[in-house]
Design a protein around this nucleic acid. Structure first.
Lengths: 355, 355
DNA sequence: TTGAAAGCGCTAACAA
DNA sequence: TTGTTAGCGCTTTCAA
C-alpha cells in the first residue's frame, strides 16, 4: 500500500500548483474550467478522494464538529423521546451547514468522573448541552476554559452562554388549573430528577428545597403558581416509564379517601408509567384518578387513550438550538429564547371522583 | 480578546522549547519534574487549556473519531431501542480509548441524496454502519474510496470490511418451531423493511424475492427453515410500534377460520404493535392469536404480559463492534463475528385455538 | 533531559 | 487565472 495521495501529488500530476489544485476542489476562487477538469482527472487517476479534512481543519481553525452533551448515559438518554427528537431537529438544522454531531455522554452518576474526556480534548467548534447545566457545572467550566461557546437547553440563564428553553412553568400551571377546574383538590406530582444524586422516592420539603436541576424546579413551581400544594412530590431518577409505574404504586396504593385524585407528571413517559401503574392497582383512569403529563409525545402503546399533557415544540426547540449554533459560528450573539407550550386535554383527565 | 495561546506561547513563558512543552502535556518522553511543573504553571498563567486537538490530529494523522452511520433519520433510528442499546455498548467500549462518536444520518429515502456529506468529508478514523449495507451501498463505496475502514452490523459479509451479526436465521427458526409445537399452522409474519423503498403492505412473492436488506431476508428465511410457509408476509417501513399495529389490522381482521393463529414479527417493537392491534380488534393474546417477536427488549408498557421473543445480546454486539473498531485502529484485522441468540418464551404465545 | 528543525496537508494572501 | 509563499499548532526525530 502506498500512502494516500495528497493534494500536492494531485497538483504535480496535473501540472499545476497546489493552490490551484485546492481551488479545483473548494471552488472558492476563480479557476479555468479546463484546469479544474485536469486536476479532477489527476485526482481520479491517483484515487484521491478529496482534501484531507485534518489539514483543512487545522488551516481554517474549524473542525465542523458540534459536541452534543447528552444528559446522561446514552442508553438512558436515548430512551427518552424528548432527547431524541430534539437531537433530530438539531441535526436537521446544522447538517446543511456541513456540521456534524459528536456525541458526548453526560454525567452518569455522582461517583463517575465529572466530565467526559471528550469535553477536555475533542475538537469541536461549539458545544450543546441538551439537558440543563448550572453555572458551576464542571462541563460548562471545561468548555469555558477551552473557549468553546455553548448552547444550553433548559438550564440556568448565564451571561456567557446561550440558553434555549420552554415556558414550562406556565405550562404546568395551566395543567394544574385544568385539574382544579375539574374539582381535584388532592393532587400529587411525579418529577424529573432533582440532580445528579438521583432518587426514586417521595421528597420531603428539605429535599424539595435543594433541587439542583432547574427543569424539575420550574415545573414544580408551576404547580404552586396555580395554587396547588401537592399532597406528595415523588422524585424519579430518570424520565422513564418504569419509574412512573413505581411512582404510581407509591402514591396511589391508599384508601380512596386519602388517595390523590390527580397526578401531574413532569414528563409523558413518567405519566404513561403512572397510567400503567394505576391500572395495575385496579384503578380506572380518569374515573378514579386523573393523570396529566408533559411533552406532548405520541405514545402508541397508550391507545386508545390520549394523555392530557402540556405540548412542547421539541423538534422546533432542536431547530432553534441549531440556528443558535450556526449564529455562534458566524460570530454572532444569538439571544436566549423561551418557546411557548400549550395544554392538550386528552382522555386521562376527568372530573374528580365524588368525595 | 487576544487569540488563544498556543504551545509556543506557553513554552516561551516557561522558558523552554516547544518540544519540551509538548512533553509536559503528553507525558510521552522523559522530562524533569521541575520542568513540567514550570510548563504547567505557565499554561495556567496564560489560560492555556491543553494542546489544540486540530494540530495534534494533523500531526498524528488521527482524528480520534468514529463515524457511526445510523440506518436512518435519527428520529426514526433512535426510536428503536435496538439501535440505541447497540450504540451504548459501542460507546462504552471505545470511549476509554479516547474515541468519540460522530453521528451520521443514514439514507432516509429513495429520493434523498444517497450519502450524507459527512461521509465524504468529515474526519474519521473508522466508520461503523449499525444497520446493514450491501457491497454496492454508496456509503460503503465512499468509505472505501477514502480508505476509511468500516465495521458493518448485520450486513453482507464482504472481504474488505468487518461484519458483526447475530444468528438471527436460526433464532427465527426456533421461534417458528415453538409455534409449530403449539399446534399453529396458519402463521403470518411481519417484517423489517425490505430496502430503501419502504412499504407498509403485504408483500407478494415477487416482492419477497427482491429483498435488498439482508436482515429481513435472513429472518424470513429462518421461518422457512423451520418448515413454515407464512400465509402472509407483511412488510413494514420501519421497526416501530405503530407499523406493527397497522400490520395486525391488515392481517387479523378476518373470520376466525381464515385468520392466522400466530404471527412472528421480526422485531419486538413490531410485535408489541401487533399485540396492541390484536387487542384493538377484540382478540385475546395468546388465546386467539399467538405473537412472537425478536430482540428481547424490556417493554414496560406490555406488562404484565411478557413477549415471547428471540433474545439477542444487543449491548454485547455493540461492545464487539467497539472492540473491532479498536483493533482496526491498532492495525489488526478483526474477524467477522456472529453472536448467538436464544428463544425466550413469554405469555404472548400459547396453544393454537381449536379449529 | 532538553532543544533545533522538519513537516503533517491544507488554505489564503499576495504577486505575477 | 495561476503560482509563490507562509503558516495553522502540534509531535517527533535527531543531535546536543
Amino acid at each position: 500500500m502506498s500512502p494516500r495521495p495528497t493534494l500536492a501529488d494531485v497538483a504535480a500530476r496535473a501540472g499545476v500548483s497546489v493552490s490551484t489544485a485546492s481551488l479545483a476542489f473548494s471552488g472558492a476562487g476563480p479557476i479555468a474550467d479546463a484546469t479544474r477538469e485536469r486536476v479532477l482527472a489527476a485526482a481520479k487517476d491517483l484515487d484521491y478522494s478529496g482534501p484531507n479534512p485534518l489539514g483543512r481543519q487545522l488551516r481554517s481553525g474549524r473542525s465542523g464538529i458540534v459536541g452534543v452533551v447528552v444528559g446522561d448515559a446514552l442508553k438512558r438518554s436515548f430512551r427518552d423521546p424528548v432527547s431524541v427528537q430534539l437531537l433530530d431537529g438539531l441535526v436537521d438544522t446544522i447538517a446543511p451547514a456541513g456540521l456534524g454531531v459528536l456525541l458526548i455522554p453526560g454525567p452518569t452518576g455522582p461517583d463517575e468522573p465529572a466530565v467526559d474526556p471528550l469535553i477536555e480534548s475533542a475538537a469541536m467548534d461549539v458545544a450543546v448541552m441538551i439537558w440543563g447545566g448550572s453555572s458551576e457545572d464542571p462541563t460548562l467550566q471545561a468548555l469555558r476554559r477551552r473557549g468553546i461557546p455553548a448552547v444550553v437547553v433548559e438550564g440556568h440563564e448565564l451571561d456567557d452562554i446561550v440558553t434555549i428553553g420552554i415556558d414550562d412553568r406556565d405550562g404546568v400551571a395551566e395543567a394544574a388549573r385544568h385539574l382544579l377546574d375539574l374539582g381535584h383538590r388532592r393532587i400529587a406530582t411525579v418529577t424529573l430528577p432533582f440532580g445528579p444524586d438521583r432518587r426514586a422516592a417521595v421528597a420531603d420539603p428539605d429535599r424539595q428545597r435543594a433541587i439542583r436541576w432547574k427543569i424539575a424546579e420550574r415545573r414544580l413551581a408551576g404547580l404552586r403558581d396555580a395554587g396547588v400544594e401537592p399532597v406528595a412530590v415523588y422524585e424519579t431518577p430518570a424520565s422513564l416509564v418504569e419509574h412512573g409505574t413505581a411512582a404510581a404504586h407509591a402514591l396511589l396504593d391508599l384508601p380512596a379517601d386519602q388517595r390523590p385524585t390527580a397526578i401531574v407528571a413532569q414528563s409523558d413517559l413518567l405519566a404513561s408509567g403512572v397510567v400503567i401503574g394505576a391500572r395495575e392497582l385496579g384503578l380506572r383512569v380518569p374515573e378514579d384518578v386523573s393523570i396529566a403529563g408533559f411533552d406532548g409525545l405520541d405514545l402508541p402503546w397508550l391507545t386508545p387513550d390520549v394523555l392530557t399533557t402540556v405540548v412542547q415544540p421539541i423538534a422546533e426547540k432542536g431547530a432553534v438550538v441549531g440556528r443558535a449554533v450556526r449564529e455562534l459560528l458566524a460570530g454572532e450573539h444569538p439571544a436566549d429564547q423561551v418557546l411557548p407550550v400549550r395544554l392538550r386535554v386528552g382522555t386521562t383527565t376527568g372530573p374528580a371522583p365524588a368525595a
